[in-house]
């Protein structure tokens, strides 16, 4: 896999790849992969589908969720689990919040076919941020006094009990952005940003599916860049449907 650019050049490396299969080529068995997205915005639907075709196994998958119980179902980590590619997930949801809903992932977890580490969402974000920022661990008040803190190190700092959490480094981040330039600079739109900048910082290799045609370097004003191109190795433009997968309106469940 490509390493981070280190020579200071902005466009000499051609980061644009031809298709989604080329984008996920070489992701090895046993890789730790972070997937952007919160609900639909920012989920790299096309790269997930390509990873399913690519077939890497024993993956550790980091994401907010393995995929919801919503209809229609879009490519999600649950599909990689169904495909026998996943050893472990690290998520803030391993079951649905409404007891009447069932995540596609949950039965596999209940049967012990896949491991899961459930992490509060803000702790998940901060563990990724810490990994990208060279901070090995931190203390947080989140989850103190709960089942998640049982048997783990806490300290009292400034009169408040806080829990030790470790950084969460990533091999590969799969992301979806609205715009990218050839230097790899990324701009997200609306709530598509969510975890993506943190995952890009935490990862050794960053692969991005991009909604708009990839722009020449400099076309995104430096002030508007959300994730700098030095972090990004591969870009692939999403073709229009049906070749590219785009968000769709969810069916609203009856309450």
């Amino acid at each position: 896999m490509a390493e981070r650019d280190g020579d200071g050049s902005m466009t000499r490396r051609n980061k644009v790849v031809a298709d989604f299969d080329a984008a996920v080529a070489g992701i090895p068995d046993g890789a730790t992969i972070a997937f952007g997205g919160f609900a639909q915005p920012g989920v790299p639907f096309n790269l997930i589908a390509a990873l399913g075709r690519q077939g890497a196994k024993r993956l550790t998958c980091i994401a907010n969720t393995t995929g919801g119980a919503h209809k229609p179902r879009m490519p999600d980590i649950g599909m990689l689990v169904e495909n026998g590619q996943v050893a472990k997930v690290v998520c803030s949801f391993t079951a649905a919040t409404r007891a009447s809903d069932m995540l596609p992932f949950t039965p596999y977890y209940e049967r012990g076919e896949v491991e899961a580490e459930i992490v509060p969402q803000g702790t998940l974000a901060e563990r990724l941020r810490a990994a990208g920022a060279g901070i090995p661990a931190f203390y947080t008040p989140t989850a103190v006094g709960t089942e998640l803190a049982e048997g783990r190190e806490t300290r009292v700092i400034n009169g408040r009990e806080v829990l030790l959490e470790y950084a969460l480094p990533v091999d590969v981040a799969l992301l979806r952005a609205h715009q990218a330039d050839e230097a790899g600079n990324l701009r997200f739109r609306r709530s598509q940003r969510n975890f993506a900048p943190l995952m890009a910082m935490a990862a050794k290799t960053v692969i991005v599916e991009v909604e708009e045609p990839i722009l020449p370097a400099g076309a995104i004003d430096p002030d508007d860049v959300h994730t700098p191109g030095i972090l990004v190795q591969r870009l692939v433009a999403i073709p229009p449907p049906p070749h590219g997968i785009w968000p769709v309106r969810r069916e609203v469940p009856a309450r």
Binding site: S92, T94, A95, T97, E110, P120, Q121, T140
Partner: peptide, 17 residues
């Protein structure tokens, strides 16, 4: 919920704390 192996925390623990 009772008897479940998994759960759905989301941001609830961060917000509550």
């Amino acid at each position: 919920v009772k008897g479940a192996k998994g759960g759905g925390i989301g941001g609830a623990m961060d917000l509550a704390a």
